[in-house]
Design a protein around this nucleic acid. Structure first.
Lengths: 249, 249
DNA sequence: CGAATGTTTGAGAGACGTCAACCGGTGTGG
DNA sequence: CCACACCGGTTGACGTCTCTCAAACATTCG
């Protein structure tokens, strides 16, 4: 019986004023797959007909089997992409951070084989699938090629996950994960000096890294006691980046 | 010191007559990402300017860091896509079978972060990157959308690999792998009644599944002694599909 | 205060890796 | 022609990493 997730953390309500007033001044503009689009292009479709959405923490954004008609780009907050396992558990495939697209491959009408759920409250920009498809099809060849490349980074990250899960020990996975998240947040301006907001519970790490929560705990505790990281109160701090990098090889 | 792979198996030389004379009658036509293209479309670019290539067993097709200018579609044989690991090993990311594209995401000019190598002798159809890009850009919206979807299956397969490596035991991984390969070959008409040509060594399975060759051996031996599979002489036979499916859950 | 959630810690079991050896087949070279 | 090396498959003994089961503790919320 699926249990209703009860969100314990307190988050301020999302104010409409938090939505960007234009794509040109959007805070995540440069982080998105269309980050290279010109100012002029951002006045046209599909951006002209963009809308916004906000989700509470722990809310399902896409269900498995659904055929999404919108492409969400995360403006704020964390979400996760996962599949259900036959034993009742879940495998987290990726975490979605500001600037990431919730369903990049939603061009097709094929039903999703994974689901997407917010972790913190999430605000997102929504582009209509059909409109976006037509607009990108009509774009110059150069933009077209880059659009095809949109999946490139995602794909690479998948490859790395495969290597990670197949070959690395628990410490290596955890260290790599923390460094990876830090790098992504840093690039988005959401981390400085190794410090960043970290809303994940240890169970999230376990479900993503293929470990048990207990073992994640032991690993984190070990890293903390060695002075490589420190954490608490939804904050993560990578204290000794060099040592962590040595662990991941 | 990298060791020269010596191919011990004997394969007949590839005869030019084995190349398909037209795209319309190509044996893998329906299996490719452009399998839905019309007869007429196959007379135009990029197909009109296609060329062919053949590789010996164990030959490197793409090097890491390379910027491929051609899109290879495998006509015949098996290949693998992999990355080097810092400990000198390799993680096999996927196996490429007839009808698969060697580098589907080669639309960009970004250097490859993996390498591709033939396992058996491989014959392939080569499309020029630039020509293909322009042709697909000019194609009808519907074809365009499907082209974007080309990566869909690949992506799904990546997701499954992540789940697999993160959560399954050795038996589950091996069973799932065999069923997966059989399904793919069946769809391509290269397997019947659970029997198919299987040129992989146990070390290939190990490198793909994140196990040691010895443990792969124990697992295969166990499955064989239980009468679920039988193999030998580059042939694999899934004897008890139902039981295997029960293992993978 | 009690219920629920998440973190932390411990003891024991099991799965998989490591190290090592042997075997059969095949090409190689004397 | 035969000894030999090499490769891949096979098997055994043993170590260790991670899981499982279990429980204590902190925090938050009702």
């Amino acid at each position: 019986m699926p249990q209703v997730q009860f969100e314990r953390r307190i988050y301020p309500p999302v104010m409409p004023t938090e939505f960007p007033t234009s794509c040109q001044t959007c805070s995540v503009r440069k982080l998105t797959p269309y980050g290279h689009f010109s100012d002029a292009a951002l006045d046209k479709e599909p951006f002209a007909s963009r809308t916004f959405a906000s989700f509470r923490a722990g809310q399902t954004i896409f269900r498995q089997g659904e055929r999404p008609q919108v492409l969400y780009t995360i403006l704020n907050g964390w979400a996760l992409r996962a599949v259900h396992l036959s034993d009742g558990g879940r495998q987290i495939l990726s975490f979605l951070l500001p600037g990431d697209m919730a369903v990049c491959s939603a061009f097709s009408q094929k039903p999703l084989e994974f689901w997407v759920k917010s972790i913190t409250p999430v605000t997102a920009c929504a582009l209509q699938r059909e409109v976006a498809l037509q607009a990108w099809h009509g774009a110059p060849l150069d933009d077209f090629a880059r659009t095809l490349d949109v999946r490139w980074r995602e794909m690479r990250s998948d490859d790395e996950r495969i290597t990670d899960l197949g070959r690395r020990s628990a410490v290596e996975r955890v260290a790599r994960f923390l460094l990876d998240i830090e790098t992504r947040l840093q690039r988005k301006g959401l981390a400085s000096e190794g410090r960043f907001n970290f809303p994940l519970r240890q169970e999230h790490l376990a479900d993503a890294l293929g470990l048990t929560p207990q073992h994640v705990n032991r690993t984190l505790t070990s890293l903390r006691s060695q002075g490589l990281i420190s954490y608490g109160d939804s904050e993560m701090h990578i204290v000794d980046r060099v040592a962590l990098e040595k662990i991941v090889k």
